[in-house]
Amino acid sequence: MKTVDDLLNVLILEELNEHQFNGVSKSIGSPNVFGGQVLSQALNAAYRTIRNKRILHSMHAYFLEAGDLELPITFDVGIIRDGGSFSTRRVTAKQGETTIFILAASFHRVEEGHSHQVSMPTDLKQPEELLSWTDVVNQYGAFLPEAMKTFLSIERPIDFKPVQLPNPMDRKDLPPKEDVWFRLKGDASKLDLATKQQVLTYISDYNILSAAMNPHASRAHFGNTQMASLDHSMWYYRDFDFNDWMLFSMDSPSTYGARGFARGNIFTRDGKLIASVAQEGLMRPKSV
């Protein structure tokens, strides 16, 4: 996938009937289905059953089994409730007879109300001052571990520019945080809010567990640690556009018992808070 159009071809599902949809997968460099893809496809399925113009405001999901990249995924949507202000949907994703994922999503009619938000970090380098994943490979590829080089070299519909760029040859523990600028490739100016939320959810599963890995970076890395998303929650606040760089600012309150927890806020470049994310992931040291 090279642009947002390629991404939408994956996220927008084939309708089998009014409550059941079918999806395909694209690899992002791991042997299993990318969690952000399943999250976004499930939201696409849920949104397709909303008839009253309500907008997604929160979702909570569990990853149950590793998805097979070669098999289609069937999404079944349960109509749980259509109340006066909120609609609730349950989505179950299956490959064959195996349930690999479940999601609950809540949609809210547009209302006026009070407004406040936390501020975006202000002491960060701007994206023009930073290297993208592609830049890192082009400039330092000869010095990168092969697995990292392969992952960073894959073509994606998103550019990522991490604010902190650790030296893989000088392993040391880092603060439990991660700040990454990102921008879509291609024209996203005509996307409606529902589609933008689905794309943003896809992006939200990138990078977040790095915040939980950083405090252990002197001895733990993706090559010697089994990593997998266990659950994912997200809250959506305001409309936005993808015309400029956006910031995903993450931190990790705790890792313990082979699990890491991380949370983050997503801001537009001008400081508008548009979403918050929380995820717990498996961080199991591999036997050497």
Rank of each mutant, 00 (worst) to 15 (best):
H216F: 08
G36L: 12
L282S: 04
A105W: 04
V118K: 04
A188N: 09
F151A: 14
P285W: 02
K286R: 07
K196L: 13
F34A: 14
K172I: 08
R89P: 09
S106N: 01
I12L: 15
S27K: 05
Q37I: 12
V118I: 14
K172Q: 15
S189C: 11
A45H: 04
I12A: 04
I274L: 06
S25W: 14
N32Q: 14
P31V: 13
L56G: 00
F267W: 12
L8Q: 06
D76H: 09
P121I: 13
A105E: 00
K185V: 08
E15F: 07
F101Y: 10
Q226Y: 02
V91K: 07
M148C: 04
R269Q: 14
Q37C: 07
L152W: 03
P145I: 08
A262R: 15
T88I: 04
V10A: 15
H216G: 07
L103D: 01
N224D: 10
A228K: 02
K272H: 07
I158D: 05
P285H: 01
L282T: 00
L130M: 12
G84H: 11
Q198N: 09
A217L: 11
T3G: 13
T225S: 12
L165M: 08
V91M: 13
S229Q: 08
N243K: 15
Y236V: 14
S210G: 11
V137G: 10
V24W: 06
P175Q: 05
Y236I: 11
W133P: 01
L200F: 00
F151M: 04
I12H: 07
G36Y: 01
E128Q: 10
L200P: 03
R183S: 12
D239K: 11
